[in-house]
């Protein structure tokens, strides 16, 4: 059956082996064989146990790391370096923002490099900061803000860049639960408003079900696709009603089971974090 829309991202037979650091050392096979496609405008979550090579996968897709084998295509073109139409939000917001520049300068820097004029830069950074509820923080330095606010600045930087595909690497792993819920809703809101394709990596099963339209479950290292689950929850999501939906619980259980199975089948000693009761 043909795809309803042409895939924006194609990952085919991706393999990544880190060479041995020393002559006598062991090389590490981070990703064995990954194949999936992402259609235009989808919000896909990628989950897997810690150490499943999620960050390696993202770095390959982002063009920051050359794959050992396999095909990577974005909008029909092979990925050979960081693509212009892609923005990345990193997990370590504190290290991804430049502490010597104000929030506004951080948001505008990629635009400056892209040759966007000063007036338009201001306009776009202002709009992006308004979109993440940080309209008044432009003159501040990143380290003067809380962790959640810093990650919102990083999201604003991505939004102002106007990507067609947004990559997020466990962006909320280091913020508290309250902030995390707010940021999850922010991602859903921006995704709907901007119509971008979002690839959201997380180790949190609840988060993946709540956010995604689809969840790709990765196995333990060496990584393959363990399962590909369609999240058939209503498009309007809400922290209270969605999370108490019986279907939410079913999906969460299914994915949790898959991750457990992944752990057993690869025989690795990686542990899956236990899920708290709903």
């Amino acid at each position: 059956m043909p795809e309803p829309t042409t895939p924006v991202l194609v990952v085919e037979g991706l393999r990544k082996v880190y060479p041995a650091p020393t002559a006598g050392g062991q090389s590490v096979e981070a990703i064995r064989d990954l194949t999936f496609t992402v259609p235009q405008g989808q919000l896909v979550c990628i989950v897997g146990p810690s150490g499943a090579g999620k960050t390696t996968l993202l770095k390959c897709i982002a063009g920051l790391l050359p794959p050992t084998a396999g095909k990577l295509e974005l909008q029909g073109k092979p990925i050979s370096g960081p693509p212009r139409t892609m923005a990345v939000v990193f997990q370590e917001y504190g290290r991804s923002l430049f502490p010597w520049m104000t929030v506004q300068a951080n948001v505008e820097l990629p635009l400056k490099s892209a040759g966007v004029g000063k007036a338009e830069r201001h306009q776009r950074s202002h709009e992006a900061l308004v979109a993440v509820n940080l309209a008044d923080a432009g003159e501040k330095y990143p380290w003067q803000l809380s962790g959640g606010m810093q990650q919102r600045v990083a999201i604003a930087r991505a939004v102002a860049y106007r990507p067609e595909i947004l990559i997020m690497d466990e962006p909320f792993a280091a913020v508290d639960a309250q902030t995390r819920a707010e940021l999850e809703d922010l991602v859903r809101k921006l995704w709907k408003e901007l119509g971008v394709t979002v690839l959201f990596v997380t180790h949190d099963i609840d988060e993946s079900v709540y956010l995604g339209e689809r969840v790709i479950v990765l196995s333990n290292r060496p990584t393959v696709v363990q399962d590909d689950v369609v999240i058939d929850l209503p498009a309007e999501r809400d922290q209270l009603t969605t999370r108490s939906d019986p279907r939410f619980a079913e999906l969460r259980l299914k994915i949790y089971g898959e991750i457990q199975r992944a752990k057993d089948t690869t025989g690795d000693t990686m542990t899956v974090r236990t899920i708290p009761a709903a």
């Binding site: 770095k59 982002a62 063009g63 920051l64 370096g81 960081p82 212009r84 892609m86 923005a87 990345v88 990193f90 370590e92 290290r95 991804s96 430049f98 520049m101 820097l109 990629p110 400056k112 490099s113 892209a114 930087r157 860049y161």
Partner: peptide, 22 residues
């Protein structure tokens, strides 16, 4: 910092900008 370098690369900062701002 490696994350700052990755950030600069993924946002395609030009070489002079990378020198001046990173």
């Amino acid at each position: 910092d490696e994350v700052q370098r990755d950030t600069a690369r993924s946002y395609r900062l030009t070489r002079p900008h990378r020198l001046r701002y990173l």
